[in-house]
């Protein structure tokens, strides 16, 4: 029996494909107004939190990806970030590889 997409199942002698953990942070570009952030900031003041100078809302996307090595994983995730997860017209993104051994994130 062969199962599509399950290389390990189909060939038990194959080396395990490494799985990498990553996080993509998508932020509105500084020049883009963030009304949701401003509304949350106003609520923070009503909560009584003082001294808040800035609050901007973005997205965190957590991913697991199987790839031959960290570089391959990274380049696939960069493509994903640039083409789907963020819209470069209004957003910036950063990619963090979370596995300690492979992390080269700033």
């Amino acid at each position: 029996m062969r199962l599509a997409g399950l290389a390990r199942f189909n060939n038990r002698d194959a080396p395990p494909v490494p799985r990498f953990h990553a996080r993509v942070l998508v932020r509105l570009r500084p020049s883009v107004l963030d009304p949701a952030g401003e509304a949350s900031m106003a609520a923070a003041k009503r909560l009584g939190v003082e001294g808040l100078a800035s609050l901007r809302i973005g997205k965190a996307i957590e991913l697991e990806i199987e790839a031959p090595d960290a570089d391959a994983a990274r380049s696939r995730l960069e493509l994903l970030s640039e083409r789907l997860l963020a819209n470069p017209v209004i957003e910036n993104w950063t990619l963090e590889m979370l596995d300690p051994a492979t992390s080269t994130a700033p």
Binding site: P35, A36, N87, V89
Partner: peptide, 17 residues
């Protein structure tokens, strides 16, 4: 159309939400 790139720019949340 903007996400497709057939027109430039993007549509974002209304100023006052």
């Amino acid at each position: 159309l903007t996400e497709l790139g057939l027109l430039p720019g993007a549509l974002t949340r209304n100023r006052h939400l």
